[in-house]
Amino acid sequence: MQYSQTVIDHFMNPHNVGKMEKPDAVATEGSPACGDQVTVYLKVNDDTKIIEDIKFQSYGCASNIATGSIITDLAIGKSLNEAKDITWKEAADALDGLPPVKMHCSVLAVDTLRTAIQNYEIAKGLITPPDFTKETIADELKKVIYPQVGEDIVSLKMVKYIGFTDGVATVDLDIPKFDTFRDNVVEEIKEHLEKYPQVMDIVVNY
């Protein structure tokens, strides 16, 4: 596995790193158990909805730090709507690419940025918190990357069924028994869904 020089540069000298005092919005995604966690802080101009300042903190590997750094560069000066449209592929491209096994770092960084924006919008009464449905599960599964190829498990057609009944989220996966990344994919699915208070239990079948 080889990191690009841009990844190394952002890892060694990350931009906009650290805690922000009195942010307008903050979000944390990931978990120490999985070995990667990102926090994003925003300062937003209430009139223009422009992101005037952004900071991040990272507990994670080199690409976790580098993707945290690059999304702050991409988001600063943008409107909230523009910043929402930043994709994890764009973030990876801005780093001159990431190894497939590290693509989930880009997803985590972008996801944290989007959650921070959503938290701002909810706090300001601009939107109401979205309902939790099967669609929410499907959207979350699009953030689970199959590390072998660096694409999400929905695009790769690895998800065969999604269910949500009585607080139990069910996901059927098509993944080989001997797949090196099977346990990682299952853990990632659980991590993405267990943050929702509506989800009481998660069943992943494979």
Partner: peptide, 14 residues
């Protein structure tokens, strides 16, 4: 504690 080993090994490698 509080930091991740791949990042440590990368920085040491550099």
């Amino acid at each position: 504690d509080y930091i991740e080993g791949e990042a440590i090994t990368m920085m040491l490698d550099i």
